[in-house]
Write a protein that binds this DNA or RNA. Structure first.
Length: 888
RNA sequence: GCGGGGGUAGCAAAGUGGUCAAAUGCGCAGGACUUAAGAUCCUGUCCCUUAGUGGGUUCGUGGGUUCGAAACCCAUCCCCCGCACCA
């Protein structure tokens, strides 16, 4: 029978909608907030999205069945450059383009049967959303957390806008991969550095986050503790400050390096013979791209600028250099150079023939500057270091810092890599920054009752400059303070501002009195499980952590960390390579869903790899899953009773009832651990067994299949729902409770008997095969009196006796050891202790006979011969748990 | 260089002290069904050998711990990801 997967899917999607099955509860008791990173509205969903949402939907459905009140919302990150580019290229309004795409994506999500609460939908480009971006901006402005500053910023010439540091990946624009330039511009920043230490400390509490994401954030914040040291410049009243993490090497300074852009450079060289040359060098370095400049393999370049400084600790006079390897943004933009103990300084000193002075001596050999081929960076004993001679350099770090502080030559300080978040974008499709410039009154925030500042519609998209500026009706306004003529800020906000608090908005999506309703947020947040790609490890996740703290300090929430658990889903690849248009290995989800239905697609994507791991897309693999789902349908074609028959169940029935209950525990465990692929494998195995065993009792079959449907329900909801109903149920499976192992059906004896039978049956079958006969004329089971079935059966049911048996075998096989009974019992004891005590179920002799009796029914010519006395040879054969078989 | 994660059969991917020659899916081979193909079902799929069986060699490589190691420890090689002239 042909299964019409998509028709079935649509049918149940309709039923779920009718039953309003996924709307969030008004008053959640056991709440669960399941969140996926909302998509950018490019119009098409790709495999990564499909994976992301399959994981989240499965979890949301599972939690719902477990009785949690689930908030599982979806929205759209809908501001951003692609919309504007489409406008320029295709002459479409960005708004139109975006909203059309929203509709398209919604349709695709609905076709997948994702169980979102659509009533909570958030679309960031709508004024009712971005109004609150503006409101937030104004609050931050008032607190000094949003400010405008002239600074060297990252400029993407292709996107025509500035970028935050986080959005520059290896010197290139995160969106278009164009090389980023440095430009001096006046821009708006969010003062994320106000929260640096807190954001860093907070990472320690995030134990529900993947380690790599935590490490990436730590690295990005880049804390280093060290010492600032001040140097007097000879023949000048200027003082230079440098940052170092190695104060123990301060006696080894032989020169000092300034970043070429350092403000002191031009000042110090002004009117000196070096001026022209220095200017030339500075210009040259400025022209180099950041990528070139940060290339470690490139030889370091620099020059002497004609000045000397005095090392306060020993009075040494040393030359002042500028060099491309010093970077203005890090530390103080000046480096104290200790060539003997720093590799970069060493290379530079060699190139420019600067002296090398050893101040840390290795324990094992003597370090001679003229023979050094590289810097000595290990630990050792201080030499040439005045009063600190002889101390270990590790100790000296602390002592010298204290010494410098006492003398006021330096002070200990902490340095971070994290810079303030540049949020100005010189583009149209974003939230207008709500600032007005008045010649008299300066930069003023738009009064809150005038929000939102709407994006102008009368703009021209020329592809050059910021379109916002082309709307004179927008730009020209009046000063909110003096009423005089004023102009509006034309920059818009980084879209990452939108996405840094959208998950708050979901809790009260239509709230008009604020960003969100405090009461609702208290009910739902923090997000219990967040799921998304690793690409946001720093960007979105760091910004959200920051904004959450800002909201906390504005008194809007009590929360510091918004995301309790985070899952970074792995990449979807094809043939071992990332899907990309240039490689031509892109698989679109849409045709897959049209061909196989949503459940097959979801099943495959959850089955093929653990959520965190890379997933290799396989067209053959999805065929396999499709076959499996069809097989599942073929098992449940007619209504079956939901409980096993009242009469005597035969052993296979009892066995499968026991299996399905054990399976329930196993599957639950796997879901809890996010091992979806393993959960699915286990259910598949069971279904395959179920199709092989012909259960005699319809009730037992009905019970097993219902359980399978329930266990599958979070993964393949449409199929499960259909099967549930085909079996005769009338309620919706999405509203069922998640099943629990029912102890009354656990039957170790039945399991043992089936194991014995399976083993013997296998043997008989293989003998038949070998003899090339369909049925054997006569098979005799030749059994020793002392069977080992017990051990064997338990082997199959994961009892600790397994270990004991193995221990025994291990000991027996060791010829040299020949342990005594005492030793064995010790080991057995140890194993038992480790495993915890589990009651042993044993098969009696009668059980074993029952197993063989079952088999004689299957094989009419089977004879069971019982040997009362076991001889050595025979017990050897019988030893692993199987009786000997004799064929006549 | 630093940090994170890995290396398991033809492929993908489980397994983290003893049911392990190792789940599951794909692929491959054989069989059943069929006029045939497809679909479906069954069986097999490291090597040698056997009627059952037994033996050998395997989980990157080399050592070690253990009665017993794919799993634990040490060393080593390789791969992927992130950061990086960070002073």
């Amino acid at each position: 029978m042909e299964i019409e997967h998509n028709k079935i899917a649509q049918k149940w999607q309709g039923e779920w909608a009718k039953a309003n099955a996924f709307t969030r509860a008004k008053n959640p008791k056991r709440k669960f907030y399941c969140l996926e990173m909302f998509p950018y509205t490019s119009g098409k969903l790709h495999m990564g999205h499909l994976r992301n949402y399959s994981i989240g939907d499965t979890l949301a459905r599972y939690k719902r069945m477990q009785g949690f009140h689930v908030l599982y919302p979806m929205g759209f990150d809908s501001f951003g450059l692609p919309a504007e580019n489409a406008a320029i290229k295709q002459k479409i309004n960005p708004k139109e383009w975006t909203l059309t795409n929203v509709t398209k994506i919604e349709e695709q999500m609905k076709a997948l049967g994702l169980s979102y609460d659509w009533s909570a939908e958030v679309v960031t480009c709508r004024p009712e959303y971005y109004k609150w971006n503006q409101w937030l901006f104004i609050q931050m402005f008032k607190k000094g957390l949003a400010y405008k500053r002239e600074a060297p910023v990252n400029w993407c010439p292709n996107c025509g806008t500035s970028l935050a540091n986080e959005q520059v990946i290896q010197g290139k624009c995160w969106r278009c991969e164009t090389e980023v330039r440095q430009e001096m511009l006046s821009q708006w920043f969010f003062k994320i550095t106000e929260y640096t230490e807190e954001l860093l400390e907070g990472i320690k509490q995030l134990d529900g986050w993947p380690p790599r994401v935590r490490v990436m954030q730590e690295n990005w914040i880049g804390k280093s503790e060290g010492t600032e040291i001040f140097f007097k410049i000879k023949d000048s009243d200027k003082t230079l400050s440098t940052f170092t993490t190695r104060p123990d090497t301060v006696y080894g300074i032989t020169y000092l390096v300034l970043a070429p852009e350092h403000p002191l450079v031009l000042e110090l060289t002004k009117g000196t013979p070096y001026e022209a040359q220095v200017k030339e060098f500075v210009e040259k370095v400025k022209k180099e791209s950041l990528i070139d400049r940060r290339d470690e393999t490139k030889p370091k370049e620099g020059m002497f600028i004609g000045k000397y400084f005095i090392n306060p600790v020993n009075g040494d006079e040393c030359p002042l250099y500028i060099a491309d390897y010093a970077i203005l943004e890090y530390g103080t933009g000046a480096v104290m150079a200790v060539p003997a103990h720093d590799q970069r300084d060493f290379e530079f000193a060699k190139k420019y023939k600067l002296p090398i002075k050893v101040v840390i001596a290795p324990d094992a050999y003597e370090l001679r500057p003229d023979r050094m081929t590289r810097a000595f960076i290990d630990d050792g004993t201080l030499v040439n270091s005045g009063e600190f001679n002889g101390s270990q350099n590790r100790d000296a770090m602390e002592d010298i810092s204290k010494f410098l502080e006492k003398k006021e030559w330096g002070k200990r300080c902490t340095q971070y890599k994290l810079r303030d978040w540049l949020i100005s974008r010189q583009r149209y499709w974003g939230t207008p920054i709500p600032i007005v410039y008045c010649k008299k009154c300066g930069a003023l925030p738009v009064p809150e009752d005038q929000l939102p500042v709407l994006l102008p519609e009368d703009v021209k998209f020329t592809g050059e400059g910021n379109p916002v500026g082309t709307s004179s009706s927008f730009v020209n306004t009046t000063c909110p303070k003096c009423g005089g003529p004023a102009t509006r800020e034309t920059d818009t906000m980084d879209t990452f501002v939108d996405s840094s608090w959208y998950f708050f908005r979901y809790c009260s999506p239509k709230y008009e009195k604020g960003m969100f309703e405090k009461k609702e947020v208290e009910k739902w947040l923090p997000v219990d499980q967040y799921i998304g790609g690793i690409e946001h490890a720093i960007l979105h996740l760091l910004y959200s952590r920051f904004i959450c703290r800002v909201l906390r300090d504005l008194g809007l929430t009590k929360l510091s960390e918004p995301f309790n658990k985070l899952l970074s889903q792995g990449l979807v690849v094809k043939d071992g390579a990332k899907m990309s248009k240039s490689k031509g290995n892109v698989v679109e989800p849409k045709p897959i869903i049209e061909k196989y239905g949503p459940d097959t697609a979801r099943f495959f994507i959850l089955f093929a790899a653990l959520p965190e791991k890379q997933l290799d897309w396989s067209d053959a693999g999805i065929e396999g899953i499709f076959r499996f789902i069809n097989k599942l349908y073929s098992l449940a074609e007619k209504p079956l009773p939901h409980t096993p028959g009242k009469g005597k169940l035969n052993n296979p029935d009892r066995f499968m009832l026991s299996r399905v209950n054990r399976l329930t525990e196993i599957v639950t465990g796997h879901i809890e651990n996010f091992e979806f692929s393993l959960a699915l494998t286990e259910i598949m195995n069971f279904v395959n067994e179920l199709s092989r065993y012909k259960l005699s009792d319809e009730g037992a079959m009905g019970y097993c299949l219902r359980r399978v449907a329930l266990l599958f329900a979070p993964f393949i909801p449409h199929t499960s729902e259909e099967i549930w109903h085909r079996l005769g149920e009338t309620s919706l499976i999405v509203q069922q409770e998640w099943p629990k192992q029912d102890a009354q059906w656990i039957d170790a004896r039945a399991e043992g008997i089936e194991s014995v039978k399976a083993a013997v049956r296998d043997d008989i079958a293989s003998i038949a095969k070998l003899l090339n006969k369909e049925k054997l004329a006569s098979v005799t089971l030749f059994c020793a009196a002392q069977w080992k079935f017990t051990a064997f059966a338990l082997l199959k049911s994961k009892m600790p006796i397994t270990d004991m048996k193995a221990v025994m075998q291990g000991l027996m096989s060791n010829q040299e050891l020949k342990p005594h009974g005492g030793e064995i019992s010790k080991i057995v004891e140890r194993v038992a202790k480790k495993q915890g005590s589990v009651p042993l179920a044993t098969l009696t002799r009668d059980d074993e006979l029952a197993a063989l009796a079952d088999l004689t029914a299957e094989f009419p010519n089977l004879k069971v011969v019982l040997e009362e006395k076991s001889s050595e040879q025979k017990s050897k054969n019988a030893m692993p748990g199987k009786p000997a078989i004799i064929v006549e």
